[in-house]
Write a protein that binds this DNA or RNA. Structure first.
Lengths: 162, 162
DNA sequence: CCGTATCCACAACGATACTG
DNA sequence: CAGTATCGTTGTGGATACGG
């Protein structure tokens, strides 16, 4: 446990301070910044659509839940859809947009890590492939199909011509 | 863009409030909670080991950097290793532990999302597979090897017998 | 070079009460 | 049911100055 393993040696010159300005990681964290945002997203993936469901299932307070729903909607991660059942007044649903749905690998990777390293494999739920029932895991894979681990990675200036 | 796509229908009964207590996602977020922690980790993956490198390359203030290094070390995500070059006094390096190294999919997934949805594919760097030079991406894949997207997912109580 | 101490501003969150 | 308004507490982070 916890022996040193990884050394990803970037090709990049560290003195280039691209990091602060245009790092896509920092950009992502600017949009989904808080714990509460992740919890709201978690419930969106689990099928919550109504305000009340988000409040109850995240355990967040109402004002915080409302703020996150508003911000995530403004950032086009959730979409607020009006609907009405016959005889009822109009209500609203919050649904994941494509932009929001593509956060799934982030959430899945966090879940996988929390399960392994905080709960020691003891989590009570898991993600499974609907078609075959096998558990799902997050993998790093290169465009040629090879599985990649930390040691096989390099950080490089992007080629524009691929 | 941003049309509704995903609907992951969990098998789980939402009224079970397993979420707040034992959700591995919430657990992970309790450990790596802040933007600054992610930035420190990013630089650890990029090869930073010394205090000064973390301060400079993250753009964080010294007190915040020191606090994150201390906390990440206490959580066994970084390890503080003493070393000495001949004729020099003892110094310390911060290195990723195995627990820390396994956060790579989380960081990679955030980078990938930020690149696509915030920078519109315009990020200036990318992760590549060292052996073949192909760009690396984060994938969800089930244990039987099938690629999985959001629609093919289900959330279920874990089977203990696999 | 590697941090710590102090101070300040603002963000995140819960609790509570209230409105359409 | 779906929020908003207000308040108080704690967390997050920068600036600056200082010590090993």
């Amino acid at each position: 446990m916890s022996s040193t393993t990884i050394q990803m040696t970037g090709v990049l010159d560290p003195r280039e301070d691209w990091t602060a300005d245009h790092c896509p990681l920092a950009d992502a964290l600017d949009v989904v910044r808080t714990r509460s945002a992740f919890l709201v997203l978690r419930e969106a993936f689990y099928g919550a659509t109504r305000y009340d469901e988000f409040v109850t299932r995240t355990g967040l307070s109402e004002p915080v839940t409302a703020a996150r729903l508003r911000e995530l909607t403004a950032d086009d991660i959730l979409a607020r859809e009006p609907y009405r059942e016959p005889g009822q007044r109009t209500r609203h649903l919050y649904r994941l947009t494509e932009k929001g749905a593509e956060l799934l690998p982030v959430l899945a990777a966090l879940m996988q890590w929390g399960d392994r390293w905080v709960q020691d494999g003891g989590a009570r739920v898991e993600l499974r492939h609907r078609d075959c029932g096998a558990p799902v895991e997050v993998q790093l894979r290169c465009a040629d199909g090879h599985a990649v681990d930390g040691g096989g990675l390099e950080l490089a200036r992007r080629r524009r011509d691929r």
